[in-house]
Lab assay of single mutants.
Amino acid sequence: MDETGKELVLALYDYQEKSPREVTMKKGDILTLLNSTNKDWWKVEVKITVNGKTYERQGAVPAAYVKKL
């Protein structure tokens, strides 16, 4: 869990989004888990830093590609 009490997951593999509802992640990324009720796809929040600014993006990733921490 992070400092706000939200559950975290670890990306076990790289994943490139294939639709606007998904998010890209790299192996080793730590993501915030938002919903894991679907056994195949979990909704997560990814933090992306671009030019020193951090953005948050929500989307789905394959459940088999992440592990709860």
Rank of each mutant, 00 (worst) to 15 (best):
46 V>P: 00
14 D>K: 03
14 D>F: 04
37 T>V: 09
24 T>E: 01
6 K>T: 11
19 S>R: 06
11 A>F: 04
27 K>F: 03
63 A>K: 05
35 N>A: 09
29 D>V: 05
59 G>E: 01
22 E>G: 13
7 E>H: 11
38 N>C: 11
23 V>I: 14
25 M>P: 01
58 Q>G: 03
69 L>D: 01
11 A>I: 04
40 D>I: 14
41 W>R: 01
51 N>F: 09
35 N>D: 15
3 E>G: 14
4 T>I: 12
65 Y>Q: 03
61 V>H: 01
54 T>F: 08
56 E>G: 12
15 Y>D: 02
50 V>A: 09
18 K>G: 07
7 E>I: 14
27 K>G: 03
65 Y>H: 06
62 P>I: 05
39 K>T: 10
62 P>K: 04
46 V>C: 10
5 G>L: 11
36 S>Y: 07
55 Y>L: 10
4 T>M: 13
58 Q>F: 06
33 L>A: 01
15 Y>T: 00
68 K>V: 11
66 V>L: 15
48 I>E: 08
29 D>E: 09
19 S>K: 05
60 A>F: 15
41 W>P: 00
56 E>W: 15
59 G>Q: 01
53 K>A: 10
3 E>N: 14
11 A>C: 12
24 T>V: 03
66 V>R: 00
44 V>M: 01
28 G>R: 03
24 T>D: 01
42 W>L: 05
52 G>M: 05
19 S>Q: 05
25 M>R: 02
32 T>F: 09
14 D>Q: 03
13 Y>T: 07
40 D>G: 08
1 M>F: 13
69 L>T: 04
9 V>F: 04
23 V>P: 01
59 G>V: 06
31 L>E: 01
18 K>A: 10
16 Q>S: 10
68 K>A: 07
41 W>A: 00
29 D>N: 05
5 G>H: 14
51 N>Y: 07
52 G>W: 03
32 T>A: 08
11 A>H: 02
32 T>Q: 08
11 A>R: 02
39 K>W: 06
24 T>Y: 03
7 E>V: 15
6 K>V: 13
57 R>T: 05
63 A>T: 05
63 A>L: 01
47 K>R: 12
64 A>Y: 09
4 T>N: 12
30 I>M: 05
58 Q>Y: 07
62 P>R: 05
52 G>Y: 04
50 V>D: 08
53 K>G: 07
25 M>D: 00
35 N>P: 01
29 D>G: 02
46 V>Q: 11
24 T>L: 03
19 S>V: 03
55 Y>I: 12
29 D>I: 04
43 K>G: 07
51 N>I: 02
60 A>M: 15
65 Y>I: 06
15 Y>F: 06
8 L>E: 06
26 K>R: 12
46 V>W: 06
38 N>Y: 07
66 V>S: 00
43 K>M: 15
47 K>A: 09
21 R>K: 12
46 V>L: 11
14 D>G: 05
8 L>Q: 10
51 N>Q: 09
25 M>E: 02
37 T>D: 15
43 K>H: 15
65 Y>R: 05
47 K>F: 09
40 D>A: 10
25 M>T: 01
13 Y>S: 07
60 A>G: 07
39 K>E: 10
61 V>L: 02
5 G>R: 14
52 G>V: 03
50 V>M: 11
